[in-house]
């Protein structure tokens, strides 16, 4: 492998990492609160806001059913307004973030709804305010599930970040397509795929290890 190739791979890996991390962090900022709202504000939930809940549910579903590659193109004006350009790593972060927010919202919602309803009864019987129930009961009990969901989201982001490569987003996907496919360099393609596999592996096992550490529901031998 030539030094040139190596430097291309290093740059691309760093670009992918930055896209995944920045988009992931921003999406958490939007997705976790949205997920909590979806889990807590439905009809019959702790803090019912049925009308807004319905509306946000529809928006989340609409965003999740839009194919990612179409989303990327469709929001180019927004991307330009936010980053001044529609190509490159920074620009790619915008659609990545937007795609990850509804995904994270749904996994957070699922994790919070998984918490045993009996715990809500116990907390209410102890005189807990809704805010205390969320802070002291729901979030601590759901944290392992939330973390597993976020791991899933991070792995998905790695996949999506490879896709934005196709529209000039930079990163490993871009490298794989331009060098590996279009210039027919199978060793480059192989290197890109291997790096992606390693990246996903690290995210998955890191996330799972942390979730296990936080999860006290089962006895560990």
């Amino acid at each position: 492998m030539s030094p040139q190739m190596l430097s291309l791979l290093t740059d691309a890996t760093l670009q992918t990492l930055s896209m995944v991390l920045v988009a992931g962090a921003l999406a958490c900022l939007g997705g976790i609160p949205l997920g909590l709202f979806l889990a807590l504000c439905g009809p019959g939930d702790l803090l019912p806001r049925p009308a807004l809940h319905r509306l946000l549910g529809l928006v989340v579903n609409a965003a999740r059913s839009t194919p990612f590659i179409i989303l990327v193109v469709a929001i180019v004006p927004l991307t330009r307004a936010l980053t001044g350009t529609s190509i490159g790593t920074a620009a790619a972060t915008v659609p990545l973030t937007l795609a990850a927010i509804p995904f994270i919202a749904r996994v957070v919602e699922a994790a919070v709804r998984e918490v045993d309803h009996g715990l809500l009864d116990a907390a209410r019987a102890m005189g807990a305010r809704p805010g205390q129930i969320i802070r002291l009961v729901l979030l601590p009990e759901a944290r392992a599930g939330i973390l597993r969901g976020l791991t899933l989201a991070a792995v998905n982001l790695v996949g999506y970040s490879a896709m934005v490569g196709a529209v000039g987003g930079g990163g490993l996907g871009d490298l794989g397509i331009r060098y590996g496919y279009q210039r027919f360099m199978p060793e480059m393609m192989l290197a890109v795929v291997l790096i992606l596999i390693v990246l996903v592996q690290i995210l998955q096992s890191g996330g799972e290890a942390l979730a296990r550490k936080l999860d006290k529901r089962h006895l560990k031998g």
Binding site: D116, G118, L119, D121, A122, V137, P140, E141, R143, A144, L214, D215, K216, R217
Partner: peptide
């Protein structure tokens, strides 16, 4: 409660 309803993470 019948099923105790303890917080697993405390």
């Amino acid at each position: 409660f019948q099923h105790f309803n303890l917080l697993a993470n405390r």
